[in-house]
Design a binder for these strands. Sequence first.
DNA 1: GCCAACGTTGGC
DNA 2: GCCAACGTTGGC
Length: 155
Amino acid sequence: MSKRTRYWLMKSEPDDFSIDDLARVQVEPWTGVRNYQARNFMREMQVGDGVLFYHSNADVPGIYGIAEVACTAYPDPTQFDRKSKYFDEKASREQPRWELVDVRYVRTLKRPIALDDIRAQADALGEDFALIRKGNRLSVLPVTAAQWKTLLSLE
DNA sequence: GCCAACGTTGGC
DNA sequence: GCCAACGTTGGC
């Protein structure tokens, strides 16, 4: 990996795991990503990378907090757990399919940055910003330094 | 709860 | 390798 992305956006359904939950536990393994593109982004992550914590399927979808990458990627244990909803019968310990990183709480935004506000900045963010591309469903995506700055200026 | 958009699966 | 069927995501 020659080029390093320093910033990311990670989605979570707050009913499942919210920024408040992360504040309580401080560090959390980001289990359950079952999309190859999202997994590959997590493989690129390095300790200390900045993470925008996004609430999807929320009353007001948007960015609610800041976190950071706490370790590099390792196999997601839920893929081996028959009782987990994330169990994947095609994965084995010898040949894991899914990886994750641990995420550490940094802070909760004073005011969440709503998806509507993010869309209003589409020009500044650029058309390639995956979060606001039509039909986007990616749950882990890279953010440039400029996008990070633009987004946090909306807080 | 609906549904558009997208990824994955599997038959051929 | 194509593509229809199916499942999932996520905004509304």
